[in-house]
Design a protein around this nucleic acid. Structure first.
Lengths: 188, 188, 188, 188
DNA sequence: TATGAATGAGCGTTCATTCAT
DNA sequence: GATGAATGAACGCTCATTCAT
């Protein structure tokens, strides 16, 4: 009976971290194998290729967001500001890695034009995030306006993470979060 | 004088394009050499390394922006909206490449943590852009408010380009531009 | 278990030969790989770099000499001349390669100023050889005198090999050996 | 009228130094050109190849020794010890370079088996040096004995330089010189 | 004579991937 | 399932050399 040193999910979680920190092309299969304590050859028992690994990482992100994060934006009894706060927190936990930035933004910029298999997943995820933001905004704005604001919010989020990375200053992203929460606060 | 097939500036211009489209790590010196019609080995007559080439690309961007683009934001006799329009147009010409996105954003996400020589130039450039936006906003807002808006604008710009790239839809970035121009329009 | 075409020790033995014949800088990793029937890339499974390979070669020489050669100079029941004879024979077997000369001398002249990691091993080995010669001489000479003679012997040995190589004439080295044996002969 | 920045002899002198310090294979034509203040391309106006340059260096050493150094060993009115002293001094000046060792020994070990054009010159030079030593010894020894001692002296000289290099200790070579002078001293 | 751009082969090294055990 | 040896292409870069100007 062969021993199993790791599970696919463990690999996905660790590989996500490595990719976030080093980028797709700058991460080697050796790096990934080392991170999970396997040898390079063993790695291919779990994922047939580097590309397939990234696909499954993105799929797991999609699943995680759908299961645990999007619902935070749809909590009917919470006010918009609370939903915004919880949603941003949940989103950050899944998708943002300290110093490494946002796996989505990183992967879009580095690979969107190269791997159609990535692009489809990335659009699905980005759409999901936008719709969640839009739902929050609809407490205060028209549907059309909410849609626009939602997209802007995600854009600014990605930009804020980029700035945080460039200046090695996490408070840039924290300020962004505060701004977004305030925007939907109705201090009546 | 020996035959010269290319100039350093031509190389910088073409390499900028290739890096924009393929990313830093995914671009090989062969790719770059082929783009300008040289062999890999010949390329090293112009740039001693891939890293140095990128440094010089970023320096040339910095120079170009300082010479021709930042001034557009400081035109005293133009109204804010016109300055915003001209500035965004100038900025786009230097820094954004169709399908490839923004060389600044790409390079920040892919290399900011790896190459200190890049980071310093990138912060210089980003600071310059933010100050230019801030100057435009100061026609309508307080200095403090302008500063914040300027940074937000650049963040959203980078996010907008990311979306344009992901969805292969240039109008996302164009809509962003319109929004920014409207924001400083005073319909008097 | 994966197929294994060679062992590390086989590589060390063959690489020692190639380095001896061609010199450190004039030997390419392809040369070495070809010698053991591997491709260049496969070579790096055994040694992470050319420098590390040479380090391990020198380490294996040090080990071999300590295990099997130095003891020949310390045989208490043998007379000095017999010990000299056996020691020179043992030394030659480990360190001298036909036509290629002495790996120690070659490596000292070519790399001593370039690779500190080599230099340390080379001094260790040279010291060990000198001490062995000194021990032989102590049967006939004072300790101080033996020390000087021992160093001279090793110097002349390296010079003799250099001459043998230059004139493609092995008898120059053989004559040297006879001379050294006679020097410690006490025909009583 | 084209300017001439350097003379062939200047190049030979400087190239000799560089080769002594870095070795033949580890010295690039760029290194040599830089040392004499030329560009690589210009270098080929003086020497058609790296190999030809080394040939001319060896030829110039041969000429220099014949003109100015060998005669020191044949001074009829000087005693052997004085001739030995002067000869060793003259030889060192031409052939030994601080830290870099002896160009003859270096070149023999690194290239003797590769370049027949080098080998012939090197044997000529080594023969010349041996004959000079032999002439000195003939004041005290038989012709046959002198011949053997002369060859041993040159061997030990090369070995002494090797040791000096390995241990970064010039006094090893100086001690060798003293020993050789004492050997032919007749304190009558 | 001097230049320096260009060449094309080769360097040491790393890569994603394969596969016999 | 895990190993790690092997692959072969590609990497960034350097080499000795050529040659139009």
């Amino acid at each position: 009976m062969p021993i199993q040193k790791v599970t696919k999910n463990e690999i996905i979680a660790k590989a996500l971290n490595v990719f976030s920190n080093k980028g797709y092309h700058n991460t080697s299969m050796s790096d990934l194998a080392a991170e999970v304590g396997l040898l390079k050859g063993s790695f291919y028992h779990y994922f047939i290729s580097k590309e397939e690994l990234m696909v499954q990482i993105l799929e797991s992100i999609d699943y995680e967001l759908k299961s645990n994060v999007y619902p935070l934006a749809f909590h009917k009894q919470y006010p918009a500001s609370k939903r915004m706060k919880l949603f941003l927190k949940g989103l950050s936990k899944v998708v943002i890695h300290k110093n490494g930035g946002c796996i989505l933004g990183n992967t879009i910029l580095e690979t969107a034009n190269l791997y159609p298999s990535f692009r489809h997943l990335l659009t699905t995820i980005m759409d999901g995030i936008v719709q969640s933001f839009a739902n929050i905004y609809q407490e205060l704005y028209s549907q059309e306006q909410s849609q626009i604001l939602a997209q802007q919010t995600l854009m600014e989020l990605e930009g804020a993470i980029m700035f945080s990375k460039l200046y090695s200053n996490p408070s840039i992203f924290q300020d962004f979060q505060k701004r977004m929460i305030q925007r939907v606060e109705t201090d009546s």
